[in-house]
Each structure stands twice: as structure tokens, then as C-alpha cells.
Design a protein around this nucleic acid. Structure first.
Lengths: 163, 163
DNA sequence: TTGATTGCAAACCGTTTGCAACGCC
DNA sequence: GGCGTTGCAAACGGTTTGCAATCAA
């Protein structure tokens, strides 16, 4: 199995090949951002990434963050999600390499994101595509609800009592 | 089975009860907007609704559109979707009464929205909730792909040839 | 009467864009 | 050297908010 280091290496190689193939430049910003993305295991937004780059002492502009995320999504190294939860506008990203496709559970109280897989989703995809003559390319499945995390439950209960 | 007229009647009654229960006012704007929402069968955004109200000669402000949509979503008369397609920012709404829960297919070319149901989604929901101790309240399943509509396929092919 | 609701416009916020400076090829 | 990329700030677009006028209760 791939560990985190070799994953990053693989990602770097893939990005190089992609840039070469597309005639795009291998700027240091792009590789630095890829590095940061592959060092994390969460679902981050563009601003998180922007801040993280500053803490990394590799300050890039927001424009570059957005531009690079587009590139990384386009070459399959990053997945872009729009969770319709508390903040329906901003996108959240996650690294894509070495991870199987999955769906998300989002706690409407603490906004925790939990990943899960279920083979039946693939079956639905196939059925639907065949039945409706639709070439399904990707999907987004999100469940919204309340998680069982103690701190979250306690906080929610306390908030309910205030009303 | 309920026809469109009685659906609207039922919706109006439900809104009245909800407003009463919550101590909110039964303003004419709210009922006029409900009327418009229940006269349509599509997935519309806030601006669509705003424009439609003007054509209806019942001009309301955008603020009222947003406020009323919130109310209608809250009392279960309208469903709010965030399809992460061409326009990842704006929400799209649909009436909720008299329609079973469903998922969406979105054509990445023509942005057509197709609805479908699959009982296996419910099974996944149950499994996931049980396994991860998560109280699932709602879901959003969207498949992205290419639809088989002739005009759409022709247009897409033509666009591809231009490159 | 009075407090919720409306309309208007300004503010908000994530994202995109225009343009000059920069640096990879 | 040429052109893709970057950084900055301004623009954009959907949504929210502040406030005065309005109106349901």
C-alpha cells in the first residue's frame, strides 16, 4: 500500500506529466501548493489553503490558489465538493490520489465531515445511466444529519435548552 | 391522486397552519409566492422566481423572495438544492408537496435536470446511519454526465469540433 | 398600537477578472 | 524573447442585512 510520502511523489509526477502534456509551466507555486494539499487529510476550502501556504512561508496569492486548484482538479489530483450545508457557497477540496471514491456525511450541528463507501451507489449509477440513457461521469452523494460525537451532542442539547 | 389544484390548496393550508403556529404573519406576498412556486414544475432559482412574480403583476422585492423561500423550505413546502454544476453558487428550488424524495441527474453540457428515484438509496442511508451512528435527516444525490438529448448531443459535438 | 414584514440599496463573501510585473521554456 | 503565470485589487453575482415605511393582528 502507498504511504503518504510516496503518494505525494506520485502526485508530483502526475502533475509534471499533465503540465508537460498541456504545455503549461511547472511553476514552483503549483508544486508548493500540491505539497500542501497532499500533506492534509481534511476537506479544506480555498481560504484554508491560502492561509496554510502563508504558514508554510510560501505566500501565494488567492488568484494562484484558485488557478492551481483548477489545474489539480482538472488532472484528477484533487476533488472539488460543494456541500450544501451551513455555507452553501464555498467549495471544499480534498486530495484524490490513492483514495477510493466515497460519499460524505455532514453533521448539521458541528459541520464535521465523515466519509463512507457503499458499493450500492455504483449499482444505482449503472441502473440510472442505462434506464435514462445518461452517460454518468461523476456523482455527489451527501447525507445530512446529526453525528453522535459527545461534544457535539452536548453542545446541541445546550443550545436547544436556551430557546 | 392529488392534482395540481388540490396540491396548491393543500400547500396553502399547510402554510397557514405553519405561520399561525410560529406566530408569523399571513402576508399576501407569502401566499402569492407560494402560488407561483406551486404552479411550476421545474427547478428554479431565486431570480427566476423574482422575475416570475413581476410577470404575474405581483412585484415583490428580492429580499421578500429570499425571506419567503426560507419560510417555505422551513415548513417543508419547498426543497432547496445546491447542484454543483455550471453555477456552483446559486441554489435551486422545487416544490416538495405530493412528490416523493428523489435524486437528480444533471447534464454537464445543457444543464438539463432529470429526476429519478431508486429504493437502494434508502437502504444506503439506513446502513450508513446505523454503522456510523449518524442520525441521517436528508440527502442530496446528484449524478453528473451527458444526456442523450439530440439537440444537446449535436451541440456538444459541434463544440468539440471547433477545438 | 406595535412589532413583524416589506422594499430598497448597500454590504457581504467566495470567486473571477484585468493588467502590469515576473519568470519558465 | 515570448508568452504563460503570478499578485494585486477591483469587479462580479448570489445572498444577506440595515433601516425606514408599511401593514397584519
Amino acid at each position: 500500500m502507498l504511504n503518504s510520502t510516496s503518494l505525494t511523489t506520485e502526485a508530483r509526477t502526475r502533475l509534471e506529466e499533465y503540465l508537460l502534456k498541456k504545455g503549461l509551466r511547472r511553476s514552483s507555486e503549483r508544486f508548493a501548493i500540491l505539497e500542501e494539499v497532499y500533506s492534509r487529510d481534511d476537506h479544506f476550502d480555498a481560504e484554508d489553503l491560502y492561509q496554510a501556504m502563508h504558514h508554510r512561508a510560501f505566500a501565494v496569492s488567492r488568484a494562484t490558489v484558485y488557478n492551481t486548484l483548477d489545474v489539480l482538479v482538472d488532472c484528477g489530483l484533487v476533488r472539488k465538493n460543494q456541500f450544501g450545508d451551513e455555507d452553501n457557497t464555498k467549495s471544499r477540496f480534498e486530495k484524490a490520489l490513492g483514495r477510493q471514491q466515497h460519499a460524505h456525511l455532514i453533521c448539521v450541528n458541528c459541520h464535521r465531515v465523515i466519509e463512507f463507501c457503499d458499493p450500492r451507489l455504483q449499482l444505482i449509477k449503472t441502473t440510472v445511466g442505462d434506464t435514462l440513457q445518461f452517460q454518468v461521469e461523476s456523482h455527489s452523494l451527501v447525507f445530512y444529519g446529526e453525528c453522535a460525537d459527545e461534544a457535539c451532542v452536548a453542545r446541541t442539547k445546550a443550545a436547544a435548552n436556551l430557546q
